[in-house]
Simulated scan of single mutants.
Amino acid sequence: MKKNTISLGGLDLLASAVLLFDADGHIIYVNPAAENLLESSSKTLLNQTLAELFLSNEELAVLFQDALEHVFADKRQDLTLERMGREPLQVHVVVTALDNPDAPVLIELRENLQQLKLDREERLLDQSQANKELIRNLAHEIKNPLGGIRGAAQLLELELPERHLKELGEYTQVIIKEADRLQTLVDRLLAPHRRPHIVGDVNIHEVCERVRSLITSEFPNGLKIRRDYDLSIPEFRGDKEQLIQAVLNIAHNAAQVLATRMKSGDAELILRTRIARQVTLAKVRYRLALDLHIIDNGPGIPPDIRDRIFYPLVSGRDGGSGLGLTLAQTFVQQHMGVIECESRPGYTDFRILIPLP
Rank of each mutant, 00 (worst) to 15 (best):
I275K: 12
R285W: 10
R237E: 14
D187R: 10
D296L: 03
A139P: 11
T280Q: 12
D201F: 09
L14R: 00
L134N: 09
A15V: 05
P145C: 05
V211I: 10
K75V: 11
K240L: 11
M84G: 01
S232F: 06
A15Q: 14
R306I: 13
N131M: 00
R194T: 08
K3T: 03
D66K: 15
V211G: 07
P104S: 05
G222H: 09
A34Q: 07
A61G: 14
G169Q: 10
K2I: 02
L45V: 04
L106V: 07
A61C: 08
D74I: 02
Q77D: 03
L116K: 14
V174Q: 07
G300D: 00
K143R: 15
E162D: 04
V62W: 11
Q245R: 15
V211Q: 09
A139N: 12
K177M: 08
T49H: 10
G238C: 08
P234N: 07
D119M: 14
H252F: 12
L269G: 00
V211S: 11
L313T: 13
P161A: 02
A17N: 07
T348L: 01
N47K: 14
R136L: 15
M84C: 07
T184W: 03
H92K: 11
G265P: 02
P234F: 09
L325F: 15
R150C: 13
N131Q: 14
P299N: 06
E69K: 01
S42Q: 12
